[in-house]
Design a protein around this nucleic acid. Structure first.
Lengths: 135, 135
DNA sequence: CATGTATTTGACGTTAACGTTAACCTCTTC
DNA sequence: GAAGAGGTTAACGTTAACGTCAAATACATG
């Protein structure tokens, strides 16, 4: 069964980034597409990788961190590199801590923002609609 | 009753930033401490503002955005600036959308990270502990 | 008074993550 | 064969958010 393939601009469109961005990630070693002649060709695995990268970015990971985490998805738990694993484990645990803090921050902020939002809305939707109740 | 006051380095220490950072925020108009002579002096309101700024940063807001949101905490819903309010409201709603996406991303990522984490741990804690059950 | 410590302003340096030309191929299609 | 649409590499530009001196001032203390 033939696999679907993407050109660089198709992939860019579908993932909402520019071709420059995709080439940049390749420079950083995050993507390694095949070539057809000199043209880059992406398969579904490449696309999945890109999607993971973008999710990492939305969470505030650096591209360097993302590179290391991506390695984990493949080398996962090879006991041959225990020290490297321990290093990555430390990074993960630190990041998990940060992310939990973010969850708190996020909840608080959403709460305050929606409070302000509703206050604003009430002011915008009722511009001197009625006279005060003091005649 | 006397209010507690902070020097710039005290404030920096307590909030986990450098003095350079605090001065930078002042340059950007995010903080306006009093002065005693030429020295900056911060009160509890200034400190609260800084804490809000740092929370904004952890959530990935730009300092410019943070400045606008901070204005909301004071000018809140003055009907005199309806158009400005609408502008800020749009920004807030866009950000709320982004934050909800982040919550999703975050949940997914935490899930995968902890999965990898436990896999790693199991490999690290059981280095060829027992022979396989095939004699 | 000398020394140390904290502060000030000002200016230049740095880094990540791309954006933006530029100059050049290579198809396809009219 | 001319034009246009896509692709390539290479190199320089940009921006935010500070870091990092530098040079000067102010205050406290042995």
């Amino acid at each position: 069964m033939e696999q679907k393939l993407w050109s660089i601009s198709e992939l860019a469109d579908e993932c909402g980034v520019t071709t420059r961005t995709i080439r940049f990630y390749e420079d950083k070693g995050l993507l390694q597409p095949q070539r057809a002649g000199s043209n880059r060709v992406y398969n579904y695995k490449d696309k999945a990788r890109l999607i993971l990268i973008l999710r990492g970015k939305r969470l505030g990971f650096s591209l360097e961190d993302i590179g290391e985490f991506l390695a984990l998805y493949h080398a996962e738990c090879d006991p041959a590199h225990a020290s490297q694993l321990q290093y990555l484990l430390d990074k993960i645990q630190a990041k998990v801590k940060l992310l939990r803090q973010q969850q708190e921050d996020l909840a608080l902020t959403l709460q305050e923002l929606t409070r302000i939002e509703t206050e604003c809305l009430s002011h915008l939707k009722l511009p001197n609609s009625e006279e005060p109740l003091t005649p």
